[in-house]
Design a protein around this nucleic acid. Sequence first.
DNA 1: AGGTCTTTCCTTTTT
DNA 2: GGAAAGACCT
Length: 720
Amino acid sequence: MKILENLNEKQREAVLKTEGPVMAIAGAGSGKTSVLTRRIAHLIFDKSIPYQNILAITFTNKAANEMKERVETLTGIYAKDMWISTFHSMCSRILRKHIEQLGYKKTFQIIDDQDTEQLIKSLLKKNNYDIKMFNPRQLKSLILKTKANPDYLEGIEEPVKSVVKEITSKYTNYLFESNLVDFDDLLLLTIRLFKENTQLKKYYNDLFKYVLVDEFQDTNNVQYTLVKELVGAHNNLFIVGDEDQSIYAFRGANIENINKFKKDFPDYHIILLEQNYRSTNVILQAANSVIKNNRSRIEKSLYSTKKDGEKITYYKGVTARDEVEYIATTIRKKVRKGYDYNDFAILYRSNATSRQFEEVFMQKQIPYRIKGNTSFFKRKEIKDFTAYLRFIINPNDVFSFMRIVRVPRRGIGQKTIEKLIDYAAENDLLLDEAINSSENCLSTRRSNKLKDFSHLIETFKEDLSNLSFNEFVDQVLDKSGYVTMLKKDDKGDVRYENLMEFKSYLAENETLYKKLDKEEMLVYILEDVSLKSEETAEDIEDAVSLMTLHSAKGLEFKEVFLVTVEMNMFPLGRSMSDPREIEEERRLMYVGMTRAKDKLYITNANMRQTWGETRHNLDSPFFLEIPKEYIEEEGYNKLISRSTQPKVNANSKRKTFLNKRKSNLDDYEENDLNKGDKVSHAKFGDGVVISIVGDQCVIAFKKPHGIKKLMKNHPSIKKK
DNA sequence: AGGTCTTTCCTTTTT
DNA sequence: GGAAAGACCT
């Protein structure tokens, strides 16, 4: 039978054990997606379960799409009809049907994180809070946590506590009044729906006879609650996870959920998938030796059936530019030897790194694709335009109104808007009502400007039902004056092109949803736009992939470049004072390394510009945790170790410095340092040794020094 | 109101 | 170094 073909014993077990709670611990590259998709196929074909009764939840759209595709090939069922989706789009799908029960309108719109922050900021200002004192970004995180769990408030200290309390309630009301939901609301409202309507809950419990959750280690508390609500009395819950790949703690992912699962589903069955099919032995061993430095983990023994393979190449560039050029040249060379550009991926810690690669690759004409970065749908012009669309659908969407009423400028300013909003609030009017009677609070001239704007939107509404999307978009852009505005903007050309791309995106969807009326159609499309932040970038067939480590999860490439592997970049500077964050960064390193099938490169640079300042970062402690036997060095480090005589001349200061370090080392007395030892340092004071690798050690000093990587035998370190 | 000059903050990571 | 918010001018 095709479904079980090429599976090992454990994988087979994970596919066949369909009844009751099952937890599969799936190490990197252990064929997790295969197991998930084949399990679905097995349920459908061998167990004759109608596909509607299966719910598969993933975290990212990418994962959902991949699963859909693979299930489609395996079963021949049109995956669009199946419940294979992210947490958020699943909830959105449920809410579109039932949200009216909670007092929202069916046409609710989803606002993204940026919008949330923006909104919180304006609420703070409006309530006369100094945003220097109450940082909107920090407040946002507190407010969202409080919204998800009101108990959270108790842990906050005054005076922040009362601000959070006040703004949380204002924020929630604002969203409700404007018929908006944020990402968390999608989950929270779904849970509320199930709690308030047991019949509905029962309906979904009966519908979803089999529930599968991918990347379980990344679930947060709300998601866990939702999963529990979704699983009915049948208890057919299958979770797949790997705590070594938990990289979303920053947004509330809670590894503890694995233990909660054990408690809540005591008769669970556990399956360990430890055989790695992806990487060479060298890569896997190296990755294991990094991840084993994490304390909070269950020991796993991943093994590879592949050969040892090539050593990991380490390249230290003289500058960041040099690092990038080395990679470009290496890829070039290999492509000439017959590799495809598709074989390569460049993984970085933060999005900002991509820019340098873009520059060099463009110049050297190396085709590349960037995942993420400023997602197409988050660009200013696209957000402006979607705000127009949202306001056309919902004339009481204050948030969208505020975004577009002055873009382009039309004689309505900040003060006018404030007066209007206040007037609406005082008299308990909806936005459109307030505009219609705005002569009561504003001069006739201003009031007329507002009414003109309102009429403009009215005409758009008519255009929407009468015209094709192609014509409609042109009308909106033209009559709103947006095109004229772009003509004066130096980036106007690019922005216009993006809008045209968005136009064809809409037109494509016009055929997809042709059963619906135009407004409904738009509601669905806008939902897609909010949830699937995917780049609609033209698919270049053969290109190098550039992406963050986070978005690389779940993917694999023949050859992987892990770049900027140096202190402050990876691990990020700010994470270094918290051991839990260090561990998360280390897991990120582990995820990155295990993306590579055949060959791994680790690169960094001796000197790089950050915020317009030149900085020298030391090697990342994670790199130092890889045993030397797995590494071969290239770049100037290699040259240094070869040169026997230190030469002093103008352009070899660096070499000299390193050589000096090396030679001085011989004179030092050996410090017998071990992990956990308390030490004192001549300059940094007291500290604790976090790890020792080779002749270097990582020590955590008291604030403000933080974590430093130092030569183990340096005379300024004294063991206590 | 709106344009221009100046200052500030910044970089995690995603739905 | 660069985007975005704020200050200042017309």
